[in-house]
Amino acid sequence: MAKKKVFQISNALTEGLEETVSAAHNYSGELRVEAISLKKIELDPENPRDMALTFEDLTQGIDKADPDYQRKIEERTSLQTLANSVREQGIINPIMVYKQGDKYRLIAGERRTLASILAGKTEVQAKILDSKPDELKISLLQWMENVERKDLSLWERLMNLEKILSSYATHKKVTLQDITPTDIGRLLGCSLPHAMNFTAVLQADATLKSHIRVNKIKNLEKAALIAGIQSDDVKQSAIEACMEGATLKKLKSISTQDKAKKTLAVSPALPITRGRQMTLVNLGTTKKIPVARLIIDSVLQHEKVTHLRKHFSDLNWADYKAINHAFKQLLLTLEKLEV
């Protein structure tokens, strides 16, 4: 009989079609990249800034009477490297703006914009959004922009994340505590373990956070590990070790002390177990018949089982199967006897 014909659009083509439609929906009107005049860009007054330096400071010079004079000079110096690369290669990632009247408000790319001015450019490449995105979207966009940046400290990232989470909580009408690591993972597009690390550090106590704030602790994984330590003195020694540059492995071994300590305090009798709780004892196996015989003979010495000896007198000690069977019977009988 002829094979029944089935015609199917290939998986690759199906996937391609679905992805295309989805991308068109999600990014419609959002990926317009154009060169816009630097003069038309303004800062968003509602967005808190980290930098004191303004556009005017770069175009007109920094006023010596400015209370932030020294800081601005330093900021300008620190922008110089970026400005040099902008002068040579332009910016690699376009900045992100939204249209506000005939101006463009900055969403992300303050440093790139300032560096472009410093480099003497008149235009900058920008992704242009049609209108102001909502709070949550702005913070997410800023997060994505910053994720690539090496110079962002752990504290700055945590502060960004806190902003995202509080906008998310307002958006979804839930409390901050209701946000799970799974939610965070989905929001940021990161792995679950990564998201769990963030959750742990956000919930860390004031001591640990103060060290992160001054950038003494810089690594998310290490910070998360320390945040999970219960006992205060172990935690303190972990913090110190971390600031002295201990590796993650070393910190893990410190944190296991904490675990050992904890279990001791709770119940010294219970061994630390992994996985499902054990409810039986496996007596193991042996290939050596004399060993088996020694064990069985020794057990049969016990006064409560003397009556069993007769069953073993005619056992064939060369037959593994017979020995196994006899030993199982012995165990069963012993269990019933409640020795």
């Binding site: 068109a24 419609s28 009107g29 317009r32």
Partner: peptide, 18 residues
């Protein structure tokens, strides 16, 4: 169709809401 959807997608990135 796939090729045309690509073109549509690319163009829709550049369009404004209006």
């Amino acid at each position: 169709i796939y090729g045309m959807l690509q073109l549509w997608k690319q163009e829709s990135y550049y369009r404004t809401k209006n």
